[in-house]
Design a protein around this nucleic acid. Sequence first.
RNA 1: GCGCCUCUAGCUCAAUGGCAGAGCAACGGACUCUUAAUCCGCAGGUUCUGGGUUCGAAUCCCAGGGGGCGCACCA
Length: 511
Amino acid sequence: MTDDHADTTSAAQAPDEAAAPTLDALMGERRKKRGALADAGIDPYPSRFDRTAVAADLHSRHEGLEPDVRTGEQARMAGRVTAVRRHGKLSFVTLSDVSGSIQLLLQQASLTDQAAAVLDSIDLGDWIGAEGEVITSRRGELSLEATELWLLSKALRPLPDKWHGLTETDTRYRQREVDLLANPDSRRVFEIRFAAIRAMRRLMEHRGFVEVETPILQPQAGGAIARPFFTHANALDIELSLRIAPELYLKRLVVGGFERVFEIARNFRNEGISTRHSPEFTALESYQAFGDLTDGMDLTEALVMAAAEAATGRTTFVTGDREIDLAGPWPRRPLLDALEERLGRRVHPTDDREELARVCRAHGVEPLDEWGPGKLVFELYDQVLLPETTEPVFLVGYPVEVSPLARHTADDPTMADRFELCIAGKEFANGYSELNVPEEQAERFEFSAAAKAGGDAEAHPADQAFVRALEYGLPPTAGIGIGIDRLVMLLSEVEAIRDVILFPMLRPEAG
RNA sequence: GCGCCUCUAGCUCAAUGGCAGAGCAACGGACUCUUAAUCCGCAGGUUCUGGGUUCGAAUCCCAGGGGGCGCACCA
């Protein structure tokens, strides 16, 4: 691939900045300071530190204090140094911990010898501990007037610009730890992510769902239509797929008597990477015995609302140039009605295929030969209707042809009891009344297996283990899947999926 | 995979064919209420890599690498 007919030995493979003289010098300075402390008998890497307060805690307890107040309260704090302002015999240090930041006020005259030595050697980025009295400065800022300081760990590498932070996207993704410590906005996004997931987990547990773990390495990927990643198990000498969805295993657990299960599942799909697609993404999937798609929509709505509330406390969010209000309840519209309104004519999977293909072309959808009528109807939704959605809406009723695991509608064998949640042109959730008739499931699998034999890389062979499970009896069941990454994108108002994934997939570093 | 854009000091950015610069960070100094502290001084470069054009290339051309965006595939 690389036509390196280069004559030289291309020794210019200097591993990143190892050869950068400036960086070497900066790191050398910091090593020197660390050494000086060690020489003075101060351990630069102490094994533990007990703190009594974090920044947010102090701020909330001492809110609104007048300037120049001494509280008499002693505190021990720890965190990273994010700013230093030295004024001769008086210094201010901004200490950032997990909760926020607080100012240390250091008067040379009242420092211990160790504190003086540590202060002398402090660099931006160092982890330090401090002990002293909680006061307000003359300007009224809540501060810890420290008399003792400890170095907890040295930052040998210089931090990014304290004002501009780190902007280069490549470095932000590759060295997320630096991004997180330098860019409060980045940190905020992940706080939203964690809070949203926590809220959804809490709600699921509250409703009696148990959190389970199903295989990521699977002999046969299933539960979705997608190209899998493959890997190899040496012990068994077999090829395995990374899961594309946990669905089939979760339903087997319902067969086994766990009537309400969910998994916050990392899924892997060997497909394009874009602003909205990551090869590795997280979905919440849940299955609820005795329910149908109505219960699925109820649960989906509750989950999204709970996530929004816990993560941001708001219901309105800006995405692109639209403002979205998540306040429910969300309308539930038959998909075919919505399509009729948009297209000016009714379409249905039983319509003549050529006629549907003409409708597609008329709306800029180029039909492929292998698409059946159900797929054509689905593509009209996907390419015409979906991008125009703004406020949350459940579209209900999808062609069976594109819903191989969903129960067909009672009075229409070509349509499935399935819904999708659409917000701002994107699909956020998908759910249905599960198909639980083993023979019908086996037939649907045969259809897919035929497609695979026909060369469709996204189709999968029949999953006999799953059909066998259905033969033991799957109760009526409602299933849902929610795209966590996209939900977090909406809640944190970022446009790139990589901004909500801690360590997104990238090409390996260096040559 | 295809197209467009981008890569300069640790970080953020200038320099459009004519001596590679600034701010922050660092280093030396002054300063007991700052909070993007201020002031004085000093230092810091494989301009992503390799070729080419030119008297002269960060700048123009070719090839390669990383990243971004759009399209395609998908959720």
